[in-house]
Write a protein that binds this DNA or RNA. Structure first.
Lengths: 209, 209
DNA sequence: GCCGTTAACTTTACGCTGTTAGCTTAACGG
DNA sequence: CCGTTAAGCTAACAGCGTAAAGTTAACGGC
């Protein structure tokens, strides 16, 4: 455990952004290493960068701003993971299934980040964060597109946004419950995930097989 | 806003439990009034009771212990609300639908309590809390019983526990998303809740209509 | 080559948090 | 009346987010 990074040269005139990048990197490392949002304190981050706590505030309004900036990257990573899982699969319904599995797996692999993005208080998010990062962002739109394809194929019927929300509810539901209650006597996690996805997809098809 | 409760007579010999009850009541009030777990600080609770902070530790191991003790009552309230919503309804499937609606409504009506019970970190819960309060507690068992009735009626097929988990995932999914992302452009909340419940129930029936 | 300006930090400090160690007060049985 | 013990207090520690004000260093202009 490297405690402090004592040597850090002051950035030059126009290069104040360098510290911002270093702060983001250090905060990200701390979040991943400890897996605990609480451990990512302003002081701990400053210490790792080799700077004093108030310097953080030159680049981030407050702690929430910093934490969410860190998670922006992971948000894109989630989108990419889901997109990649669905790539090259012709069957639209199977593609949705893969997307769901990838989403859940991402949450289980990055629990603290998932908690911050989808399980924290709305007040903790910077203003307008939800709209821009969820609806406006690629992630949800990509899901809606995928759902629309299933509708066009005649497998789903209804409104794409509404159906997408239902799917999101299902994958988020199982992800967040597994994260918040790991000690619950889950029968078999893989089987449970599959049965949830089965329920969701079966519940949405217009003409059940 | 009544700040402090300055007068409080010391409890008599065997009556130490009285303070415990007063602490629970004060903490509960604070949680409801502010709707914020952070506002329920040891000092704020002690102040309201008219006692000093360390006295709290005579009755609760730490802050988590106190918070969860407060929410135990709300947990029972959730169970009662769900049970009551299903009472007197003959159709087992409709009964499940009512249970789901009641569960969601309870979460929306008691957001901070719901967050603590179902959206917080597992480490925050006292040891063995999940098992006793979820599986062992009445709530989940009642759901399993209701599901078993639907199975017995031939409407669902499969294992009652697995199906119950799926239903729990659905209602928890929409509840927690509505709580954590109230600014998301939800089409219409009531319609969204209904479509989620529809998806879940349709996805679980053995012979779709 | 010096000077004012300003970006890039630091020092210090305030008020808050959960928690602990150790003391005091008051009620009881004998 | 006295020892014991439950009930509660005082003081303090270490940590937190954050604000105000000071300091250091790089620059453009003269």
């Amino acid at each position: 455990m490297k405690a402090t990074a004592p040597k850090r040269a002051r950035a030059k005139r126009g290069e104040g952004e360098k510290l911002r990048a270093q702060i983001l990197e250090a905060a990200n490392e701390l979040l991943i290493e400890t897996g605990d949002q609480e451990a990512v304190s302003i002081r701990a981050v400053a210490d790792r960068v080799g700077v004093t706590p108030p310097s953080i505030y030159m680049h981030f309004a407050d702690k929430n701003d910093l934490i969410f900036a860190v998670c922006e990257g992971h948000f894109n990573a989630l989108d990419e993971a889901v997109q990649e899982a669905a790539a090259g699969i012709d069957d639209p319904l199977l593609s949705l299934h893969r997307r769901g599995r990838a989403y859940i797996q991402f949450g289980l692999d990055n629990p603290e980040q998932y908690r911050i993005l989808f399980m924290s208080k709305p007040a903790a998010a910077p203003h307008g964060f939800q709209e821009e990062r969820l609806k406006g962002s690629a992630s949800f739109d990509h899901l809606v597109e995928a759902v629309q394809q299933v509708i066009d194929a005649g497998v789903f019927e209804g409104e794409a946004t509404q159906i997408s929300i239902c799917l999101w509810v299902a994958v988020h539901g199982i992800t967040s419950l597994l994260l918040s209650h790991p000690n619950f006597p889950w029968p078999d996690i893989d089987a449970t995930i599959d049965s949830v996805l089965q329920m969701a997809l079966r519940g949405l098809v217009s003409k059940p097989a």
